[in-house]
């Protein structure tokens, strides 16, 4: 039974990855450099990982699972911003990434204090 569930999940994930690879891209990624098509597919793979994280936020049995998923989502958005820097050539995307990383760290600390059930002023 467990092996069957593993096999079904593997087939679904592999189908999504293959669909990402053969799907045509929006025209933003068609000018110039030869590796831009790869970067467009990379964005879709990071979005797939974010959807898996959002599943854990949705069905987490306890509050700690949701906090873990939000923390991981914050780190992954930094990678998304770093990839977006290359094809667009705008350097402020990585500024958004740095600010997002620091803000996500502080909010995770505050959420874990809240989970522990003590005041914020310790």
């Amino acid at each position: 039974m467990k092996t069957l569930r593993w096999f079904i999940g593997l087939v679904i994930l592999a189908a999504i990855v293959v669909l990402i690879i053969i799907r045509p891209l929006p025209f933003l990624f068609y000018h110039g450099l030869p590796y831009l098509k790869f970067l467009g597919r990379a964005l879709y793979i990071i979005l797939l990982s974010c959807v898996l994280c959002l599943y854990r936020v949705w069905r987490g049995p306890t509050g700690a699972d949701r906090i873990v998923a939000i923390d991981i989502l914050g780190i992954m958005v930094v990678g998304l911003c770093a990839i977006l820097t290359i094809p667009t050539g705008r350097s402020w995307y990585i500024d958004i990434g740095i600010a997002w990383a620091l803000q996500s760290f502080i909010s995770t600390l505050a959420l874990s204090k809240y989970l522990e059930g003590r005041g914020f002023d310790e």
Partner: peptide, 15 residues
């Protein structure tokens, strides 16, 4: 990121 993982694990165990 290890510091935030440490904080989450500790507070989850204490709660």
């Amino acid at each position: 990121s290890p510091v935030s993982a440490h904080a989450i694990a500790r507070s989850a165990h204490r709660s």
